[in-house]
Design a protein around this nucleic acid. Structure first.
Lengths: 126, 126
DNA sequence: CAGGATCCTATCCGATACTG
DNA sequence: CAGTATCGGATAGGATCCTG
């Protein structure tokens, strides 16, 4: 845990001093790229969804993980949460501006991987 | 694990049928967004690095995790590995075309998060 | 220097049960 | 419907030792 910025010697650009220290961006990235976070964010890009809609959309996720992931994303300011006090209660989730901003590279990432996989089929050339 | 594509009803766009099924992209995304994978990929964007250089760059990573992460990335065709049979042996890692392609949105993601964090300082408006 | 093998712990995460 | 609380299995991941 010796706090040293290795990338300060990061030549011309010197872009990042961050990704080895304990800067908050590390935590944020961890949340965003968590097992389910990325899928929640991508899911919400098309439109706002309710809890059960998210659960249906993201195959394989459990209620626990969905709730936990959503809580982290809401806390990070990536997702908003709106409760309508009806019976039964309805809770809707959607992306904040920040969330939408973050969703772009995520979708892009997923897009490129998908494209690559379909291009090379299965047996890549290496 | 009932294989159903929820997003087939995904209206106008209908972009992704994938991210809830067990398509190979899921695995790839998991590797790329694994705890250390993203930092390895970002590290290698500026230039090729040797094993110990990577370990120094990515603060907090253990040899085990670095080796394991690298193996997965090499297997996925994102990173190449070059062994020079000298004494002591030198092993260099770098990004393949695919890895470089994937690295772009990753860097973008990290960039946006960092930018947002420095913009709002610490106490975001929510 | 590069990394495999082993051990052990922290955490992730799913299943279940319960609340409002 | 939308969660929370708890338990237990699986896995991630760190520390250490050892090899080429």
């Amino acid at each position: 845990m010796a706090g040293g910025a290795q990338f300060t010697r990061a030549e011309a650009g010197g872009r990042y001093d961050v990704f080895h220290t304990d800067c908050p961006a590390r935590d944020m990235v961890d949340h965003v790229t968590s097992r389910w976070g990325i899928w929640v964010l991508i899911s919400l890009r098309s439109n706002d969804l309710r809890f059960y809609e998210l659960r249906e959309s993201i195959q394989g996720i459990s209620e626990k993980m969905l709730a936990q992931t959503l809580r982290a994303l809401v806390q990070d300011g990536l997702v908003w949460r709106e409760v309508e006090p009806t019976t039964p209660p309805q809770v809707t989730y959607g992306l904040t501006d920040f969330g939408r901003d973050i969703g772009a590279p995520l979708t892009d990432l997923f897009d490129r991987i998908t494209r690559q996989l379909s291009t090379r089929g299965e047996g890549g050339e290496g």
